[in-house]
């Protein structure tokens, strides 16, 4: 549901103005916020994701400001399931160009796929990297020598230790 101008104005008067929308409506709401003459959120300052592992969802947060009317911020939030295949959100890069690199970063570190993004690649991690390190259940490798392409002795050791985490560590955790 697209909010009215009055509703957004009321939100802006509160301390932490935030607006949570469904994924299907994200683009429509973003376009409304940007083009409505009384709101004019023309500046998308900050894009990031938060991994709420207990609620089993990833929340993408856009912080919007208006350069023309000098108000903000309004946090535009949208939630997606954590499972990698379903973790998809429509991209807002066509609306605000400034989302381009930041959405790539959220994809890289959280695994959120932005549908409609012109160039969705990893940006901070290298291309061969397989996981998404900012997720709360990410387990860092015990030995960075194994990344990105283990071979020779290192691969043999990695296999002997049972993949990313050595079996002895897993035993100790039990």
């Amino acid at each position: 549901m697209i909010p009215t101008v009055e509703q957004v104005r009321e939100m802006l008067a509160t301390k932490a103005a935030s607006l949570t929308v469904e994924r299907e409506q994200l683009l429509a709401v973003a376009n409304f916020l940007k083009t409505e003459p009384q709101l004019q959120f023309d500046f998308c300052s900050c894009v990031t994701a938060v991994d709420y592992i207990k609620q089993d969802c990833i929340e993408v947060v856009y912080h919007l400001y208006s350069v023309a009317l000098k108000h903000g911020p309004l946090a535009l939030k949208v939630r997606a399931p954590r499972a990698l295949e379903q973790c998809r959100v429509p991209s807002l890069t066509p609306v605000w160009r400034g989302c381009e690199f930041q959405e790539r970063e959220a994809f890289d570190l959280f695994g959120v796929k932005f549908d409609g993004h012109p160039d969705l690649r990893r940006i901070l991690m290298w291309d061969e990297f397989v996981d998404h390190p900012m997720r709360k259940d990410y387990v860092p490798p015990m030995d960075y020598e194994w990344e990105p392409t283990p071979h020779g002795e290192t691969l043999a050791r990695a296999k002997a230790q049972g993949g990313v985490v050595p079996a002895s560590v897993l035993e100790a955790k039990k």
Binding site: D42, F43, C44, S45, V67, W96, R97, G98, C99, E100
Partner: peptide
């Protein structure tokens, strides 16, 4: 473009 691309 500067505004749209979040240039600050």
């Amino acid at each position: 473009l500067a505004i749209n691309a979040s240039i600050s």
